[in-house]
Design a protein around this nucleic acid. Structure first.
Lengths: 218, 218
DNA sequence: CGATCAATTGAAATCGTTCAACTGACGTGG
DNA sequence: CCACGTCAGTTGAACGATTTCAATTGATCG
């Protein structure tokens, strides 16, 4: 991914900034550009007609997104104030005809996103509320590129955002967090930061069946 | 998308057959080929360690899948006996350096599949069991390329497969079908066929009625 | 035509949602 | 710099949908 970004320097690009809540692009639009996150957090989402929302992915500095040619299939919004690099899609395509590296990079990125989303579906349907939250916090910790202290991570998105990502009502998320706090798995710092404790760090989806047993027993 | 398949004729390819249940490729394998479905039905899935399974997509004749360069992120299995066309990944990549059409086709396929999966997540988290089943049956009807009679469609996959696709227990699926039958929305023909009645045909969730032609790359 | 296993049905339990009320974190203005 | 107001977030209680476990049916295949 990082290599890929450096290869993209050959394409036309320039920096852009957006404020929290800004809609970078919407579903069904015709794409003209793709982006790399330089600072802040972006969410990709599908919007239901009735206000329901499914967040598909959270993106952080270094992540590249929006490389669709035909039509946007998701929308992208600014979770926080943003600094992005905007690449002209046309120039990236031109570049890819000359550089196999770019083509391979684009396809690998697409495939990686697909794999992540496939696993996301799996988690949502097979894990309990608390397991999903723990999975999310672990994932977030590994992806945050600006750790404050050991295992302490910023939580840039709202509870509603997290709920819409995990397929949980905000109330359920709140209760799950409460239990995790009570168990000593996590410490919250205000509303926008947390620390994962050792037992939570040991979390792997595979050996997680034991976890739920432990919790229900206690 | 059909154009895309014809462009692929320039790559090295040959026909292959698999029997029901065959694992075409598994997660984490290094990809060597991609495929087009000529006859039968394929499922893409993520396998949990404990036997849990999430089916990501069902593929039918005309659909292209298995396009990843780095590592498989899902596995592919034969729902029915299959006839596929197998394309050497190497030759497709070579072709793409000479033909922008191939590159664009691959990227569009990947993007279409991503959009489909994004909507799939949305459906699973926001629709009730009965809505999901109705959505699935409608989708299936539009994708089956071998209609027997008006609105009558083959149901090539097992109940368990459908459940694993929709995120429902087989029992829940069974009960949902029972209700749909009672309401006169659907008629089942044995275990492997069904007819959608007018009220079910009217079922329409605004934001995913559009993508009837799905070409897949994973 | 019978055996077998997928599919269905029933009943009870579980988990998450919903609706409603409350709390407190955070930003704003004095 | 502190007090205040606001709204995100939390808590409580009842409800409801889906799951789970167990038993039965019946479609399909040899």
């Amino acid at each position: 991914m990082t290599q890929f970004t450096s290869v993209l320097e050959g394409a036309t690009h320039w920096p852009v900034s957006f404020r929290k809540g800004y809609v970078i692009y919407d579903e069904d639009e015709t794409p003209k550009a793709m982006y790399r996150v330089d600072r802040g957090c972006v969410r990709l989402q599908v919007n239901g007609s009735d206000g329901d929302r499914q967040i598909i992915a959270f993106l952080f500095p270094g992540d590249v997104f929006g490389f669709s040619l035909d039509r946007r299939t998701t929308s992208a919004e600014a979770v926080t104030d943003l600094e992005l690099t905007r690449y002209s899609l046309q120039s990236v395509l031109d570049l890819s005809t000359r550089s196999r590296e770019v083509t391979v990079g684009l396809l690998n990125s697409a495939n990686a996103l697909y794999g992540d989303l496939a696993r996301h579906v799996d988690q949502i349907t097979h894990l309990s509320a608390m397991e999903r939250v723990l999975w999310f916090l672990n994932w977030l910790m590994r992806h945050q590129h600006t750790p404050k202290a050991a295992n302490t991570v910023a939580l840039p998105m709202s509870r509603r955002d997290i709920g819409d990502y995990l397929g949980l009502a905000p109330e359920t998320l709140s209760r799950a967090l409460k239990q995790l706090r009570a168990k000593g798995y996590v410490t919250l710092h205000g509303r926008r930061g947390f620390t994962l404790k050792p037992p939570a760090l040991a979390f792997h989806v595979s050996d997680f069946s034991e976890f739920s047993t432990v919790v229900s027993a206690a």
